[in-house]
């Protein structure tokens, strides 16, 4: 399974939706994922890919990790996997 499919699976599980309901332009808000759900999703992502995601819930906009859409989350994780598994 590639990174994109695995991330969508994690987000879908958090949102209690089918992976097919999660599109690249979905936002966490549109999927009904709140701040606690986001922190839990990031934990699942870190565990799945064995990476560390720089994310502080107090300043999400300042984190290097862009959570504005599913596409941006996937792009961020692809970058982190490439960097941290290099």
């Amino acid at each position: 399974m590639d990174i994109k499919d695995r991330v969508i699976e994690i987000i879908a599980e958090q949102a209690v939706l089918e992976p097919s309901d999660v599109t690249m332009d979905s936002t966490l808000e549109s999927l009904g994922i709140d701040s606690l759900g986001l922190v839990e999703s990031i934990f699942s992502i870190e565990e799945s890919f064995d990476i560390s995601v720089p994310f502080n819930a107090n300043e999400p906009e300042k984190s290097d990790f862009d959570i504005s859409s599913v596409a941006s989350i996937i792009a961020g994780i692809e970058k982190l996997v490439a960097e941290q598994h290099a």
Binding site: V39, F55, N56, A57
Partner: peptide, 8 residues
Amino acid sequence: EGLRVMSK
């Protein structure tokens, strides 16, 4: 740390 609300 797990909660991601801490300042560094």
